[in-house]
């Protein structure tokens, strides 16, 4: 966890942005995502987020709700806990698709 936090203070170069950046932020958000065993396994939610150039994450809203309040709440918590993310080269809008 510490190394992830440390990396978030360094801007990633342009090569990393295209491929590795999204792998890194997926991993970071996933670390903060946990769901109760009671949640069905065949649902998904898509959340649109804006990652500012300083790494702050703004949640724009659900593009697709799972229909399960607990699941939707868990993904919002995961995103909030992950902010700030490593700063991108420039502001970027990401659709994050969560699937158990």
């Amino acid at each position: 966890m510490k190394s992830n936090t440390a990396s978030s203070t360094n801007k990633l170069n342009s090569n990393e942005f295209s491929s590795s950046y999204f792998t890194i932020i997926s991993g970071l958000i996933r670390q903060h995502w946990s769901i109760p065993d009671t949640v069905p396994k065949n649902i998904e939610a898509i959340v649109a987020v804006r990652i500012l150039s300083n790494g702050q994450v703004i949640i724009e809203g659900f593009e697709k709700s799972s229909g399960n309040t607990i699941f939707d709440s868990s993904v919002i918590r995961a995103i909030k806990k992950s902010s700030p993310l490593p700063p991108p080269k420039s502001e970027v809008i990401v659709g994050i698709r969560f699937k158990p």
Partner: peptide, 21 residues
């Protein structure tokens, strides 16, 4: 260009941790 018309990229996040609610 950075905000309104920025291209949206989709990423998948799977296999969450399992915990008690």
């Amino acid at each position: 260009s950075n905000s309104t018309f920025a291209e949206k990229i989709y990423i998948d996040i799977t296999q969450p941790g399992i915990k008690k609610l």
